[in-house]
Design a protein around this nucleic acid. Structure first.
Lengths: 147, 147
DNA sequence: ATGACTGCAAACTCTTTGCACAACA
DNA sequence: TGTTGTGCAAAGAGTTTGCAGTCAT
C-alpha cells in the first residue's frame, strides 16, 4: 500500500482509480475518520455526520465503510458485544475487550506476530493482518465488583 | 483453575459448588463439548443435541453456554461473521478468521503474549486471556479469486 | 444520458427477554 | 415445597437487501 489518502483530493483520486464515484457521504465520512483517530461504530459515524450531512442513511454508512475497508482505508473490528467498530488503519496496535461491558480499548502494538502469520500461511490462509486480542474486565467493570 | 471437569459427576460437583442445579441440558451439552474439541455455534450445539435431548430450546442453549463461560469451561468467540463460536478452553491457541466467508480456524498457540497482557494491565485492564487473531482469506476463498 | 449511489422501508440473522410450566434440591 | 431452570413466543439489536429516485461522470 502506497500511503493512505490525507486529503479530499487524494481520496477522490483513489476512488476514481478504482472506478468508484466521488460523493458527499464518502468525502465526509473519510474526513471524519481522518480527524478522529479512534474507532467508531456505524451509528457514531452517522450521528457525527448529522451536522454536515443530515439524513445520511444507515445503509449508506455501512456501504461506505465497507468500500473503505475494501480499499484498505479502515479495518472492521467485530468484537461481538454490540456494534462493529471501524478504525482508520494506521499503525499496528492490539485491542483489549471487556467481557462485561464490551468496551474495546486500543493497546500500543509491540508483540511480534510474524510467527502467527507464518503459521496461518502454513494452514493455507492468505493472511494479511494479525493482532493480539486481550480479554478481561476493563477498569470500570473490574472496580464495580468482579464477575 | 484446578482442572476442567472430565466426567458428568465432576461437572455435577462443580455446578453444585456454585449453587447451580444439575439438569439434562447442562450434562448433555457439557458431554458434547468434552467429546468435540472444535468450536461450535449455538445452533450446532442444538442440532447435535437433537438425538439425545430433542426439543432443547435456543434460549436454554445460550443460557447454558453462558453459564459454562462464567464457570470457565468454555470461551466465547465473537468474530462477527455470523454466529458466535463456543469452544472448550483447553490449550491456548490462536485463530485465523476469513474476511470473506467468516470461517474461523484454529492455529496452534506459540506466540508469547505476556507483553500484551502486561500492557493491558498497565491500562487498568484486569486481563485474563490473550490470543492472536489473524485476518485474511482462507484457502477456499483465496482460491476462488482474490477479493 | 446512463449507470452508480442514495434513502427509505422492510427483511434478515443472531441473541435476549417475559412469562407459565416443569423439575431439581 | 420453594426456587431455579426450561420451553415457547416474541422482542430486540445490528446489519443487509430491494426498489425507486437522484446525482456524478
Amino acid at each position: 500500500m502506497p500511503h493512505p489518502p490525507a486529503t479530499d483530493a487524494e481520496l477522490a483520486g483513489l476512488l476514481r482509480e478504482h472506478g468508484h464515484r466521488v460523493t458527499s457521504p464518502r468525502l465526509l465520512i473519510h474526513r471524519l475518520l481522518r480527524h478522529r483517530a479512534e474507532h467508531l461504530t456505524a451509528e457514531q459515524v452517522r450521528s457525527a455526520l448529522a451536522e454536515q450531512l443530515p439524513g445520511t442513511s444507515v445503509p449508506t454508512i455501512y456501504a461506505t465503510l465497507e468500500l473503505f475497508e475494501q480499499l484498505g482505508l479502515v479495518r472492521r473490528l467485530d468484537m461481538g458485544a454490540g456494534a462493529a467498530l471501524y478504525e482508520p488503519r494506521t499503525d499496528r496496535h492490539d485491542h483489549a475487550v471487556c467481557r462485561r461491558c464490551g468496551r474495546v480499548e486500543d493497546l500500543p502494538g509491540g508483540t511480534s506476530l510474524a510467527a502467527a502469520l507464518r503459521r496461518a500461511h502454513d494452514h493455507g490462509f492468505a493472511a494479511d493482518h494479525a493482532e493480539v486480542v486481550v480479554s478481561g474486565l476493563c477498569a470500570a467493570c473490574a472496580g464495580a465488583g468482579a464477575g
